[in-house]
Write a protein that binds this DNA or RNA. Structure first.
Length: 262
DNA sequence: AAAACGCCCAACCGCCATTGC
DNA sequence: GGCAATGGCGGTTGGGCGTTT
């Protein structure tokens, strides 16, 4: 069941953008804002597919983008977030102001993977390379790797899929909003289901040595609830908002401020 | 100096989720 | 409820550029 192409490829440019195309796109968005990407190319006089325009704007032309090398702090943050979120580049990008998912993805593939490998850590699983077999039941070797990376927060396994849905359709995209509202603003899907989301994340943020018998029992349980960051407040749809570090052991973290990192 | 090689990153592609009719 | 349109995301590709031989 193939889908129709997003545009008439016969009449669209491909490949690198020219300066003139960039200027047209920027001028149009400045005048009209980010609107319907489908119709934007025609309205802006561009022979480009709408998706291509969106990508160009998001990844290159947006005025709030931070260019230049990643700092060591950003490096470590990406590593830690990847440990929590897996290849959810848009979610990771949501935690790094001025960075795009594409940029982070590229940076991961070109730099961080090698960096982790040089540390003897599998970049995909965040486990120590070759140590998984030796791990005793319930004592995952990657916790050791996680501890090497950072004293907190590496999950037992990256979540296969975060149950993320837009909490409310009300706010349309604005500035970075399209991305951040979809990414960090999502997660409200839980609002429609009684099923607690956070336990699904399987966040294992133990710091000390885990209890030998059960993987989920920790002497000093500690976890980050991303629900808050994802836009859930006051107990919406989250089993962990009970969240006093109580029986469930979930800590409840404030959303990050600008320039503040996990 | 030139060819070969490797790296980096912008852009494309295909799929999935959401929205509107 | 079903379908099509659209937006968004993650994986992959390929051209440009710097480095090595």
């Amino acid at each position: 069941m193939g889908r129709s192409p997003c545009c008439e490829k016969a009449h669209t440019n491909k490949g690198a953008w020219t300066k003139e195309e960039d200027e047209r796109l920027v001028a149009y968005i400045r005048a009209h804002g980010e609107g319907c990407w489908r119709s934007l190319p025609k309205a802006a006089g561009l022979l480009r597919c709408g998706k291509s325009c969106r990508l160009r704007w998001m990844n290159y032309l947006r005025p709030d983008l931070k260019r230049g090398n990643f700092t060591d702090e950003e490096d470590e943050l990406i590593i830690r977030l990847h440990g929590i979120l897996g290849n959810k580049w848009s979610l990771i990008a949501g935690q790094l102001p001025g960075r795009t998912d594409n940029e982070i993805k590229n940076y991961w593939n070109t730099h961080i993977k090698r960096k982790l490998l040089s540390r003897g850590i599998d970049p995909q699983t965040h486990r120590l390379l070759g140590a998984a077999d030796a791990a005793a039941p319930g004592v995952a070797a990657h916790r050791v790797a996680a501890a090497l990376l950072h004293p907190m927060a590496i999950p037992a396994t990256p979540p296969a899929k975060l149950a993320v849905k837009k909490p409310a359709p009300a706010e349309s995209s604005s500035d970075d909003g399209g991305r951040s509202s979809t990414s960090s603003g999502s997660g409200g899907g839980g609002a429609s289901t009684a099923e607690p989301r956070c336990p699904d994340l399987n966040l294992d943020l133990s710091v000390g040595p885990p209890a030998a018998d059960t993987p989920t029992s920790h002497s000093q349980p500690r976890a980050v609830c991303l629900c808050y960051r994802l836009g859930l407040h006051a107990g919406e749809a989250c089993g962990c908002q009970a969240a006093k570090p109580g029986p469930q052991g979930f800590g409840y973290f404030r959303p990050l401020e600008q320039g503040q990192y996990i």
